[in-house]
């Protein structure tokens, strides 16, 4: 451990000296998170149902994801998410939010997502591919035992067919139990 600190100090010293010498060009440091994200992105192998989009190509840490399930009760919808990765990645998971208001047991009305690998089961050996595939899985198999939207979870648990109907109508922009949802049909 001692060695790490002394190396860090040395590095800072070098940086200071470079600044003092007026080398001018302050090198923009590429962070560990950026390097790791870059690697994860080049290794992505996604099904055609998952698409990523980079509004700012220089910023790999913030991007958009859309998922278009081709089976299951959410088939025919397009679900959009924002991914925000902070500089502690991969020690902290990406922050994922759904930008639409949807009827789903594991996604609340604010768009917060309950997926184990984005929360308590995150570990740095997981990559973005695993997160994206896991996210898609929520639409194939909504999980009533670990809900964020308790009403939807109860609905799914009590009456699967009724829940399916509610999902369909919510996806078309309809209301479920007095709550109106966004139209997510493509």
């Amino acid at each position: 451990m001692l060695k790490i600190w002394s190396m860090k100090q040395q590095q800072q010293q070098e940086q200071k000296e470079a600044a003092a010498n007026g080398d001018g060009v302050v090198k923009k440091k590429v962070t560990a998170a950026q390097i790791r994200v870059q690697k994860d992105l080049t290794e992505l192998s996604l099904p055609s149902t998952i698409k990523t989009q980079f509004p700012n190509p220089d910023d790999l840490l913030n991007f958009l994801v859309s998922i278009e399930p081709d089976e299951g009760m959410y088939q025919g919808g397009r679900f959009n998410f924002t991914f925000k990765i902070n500089n502690n990645f991969p020690h902290e998971p990406p922050k994922v939010k759904c930008t639409q208001k949807i009827y789903h047991p594991n996604i609340d009305l604010e768009g917060n997502v309950c997926l184990n690998i984005l929360r308590e089961d995150w570990k740095p050996v997981l990559n973005l591919n695993a997160v994206l595939v896991g996210l898609q899985y929520l639409f194939l198999e909504p999980n009533a035992s670990d809900p964020l939207n308790k009403d939807a979870a109860l609905d799914l648990q009590r009456n699967r067919d009724g829940f399916k109907r509610n999902v369909r109508s919510s996806m078309a922009g309809g209301a479920v139990a007095g709550e109106r949802f966004d139209n997510v049909l493509r």
């Binding site: 060695k3 790490i4 190396m7 590095q11 962070t31 560990a32 390097i35 994860d40 020690h91 050996v125």
Partner: peptide, 20 residues
């Protein structure tokens, strides 16, 4: 598995591989 850099390379904070 954490930084996805070769073992024979360095972690993201280091400059020199090996004993360092």
């Amino acid at each position: 598995g954490i930084c996805r850099v070769a073992f024979d390379g360095t972690c993201p904070t280091c400059k020199y591989p090996g004993d360092d």
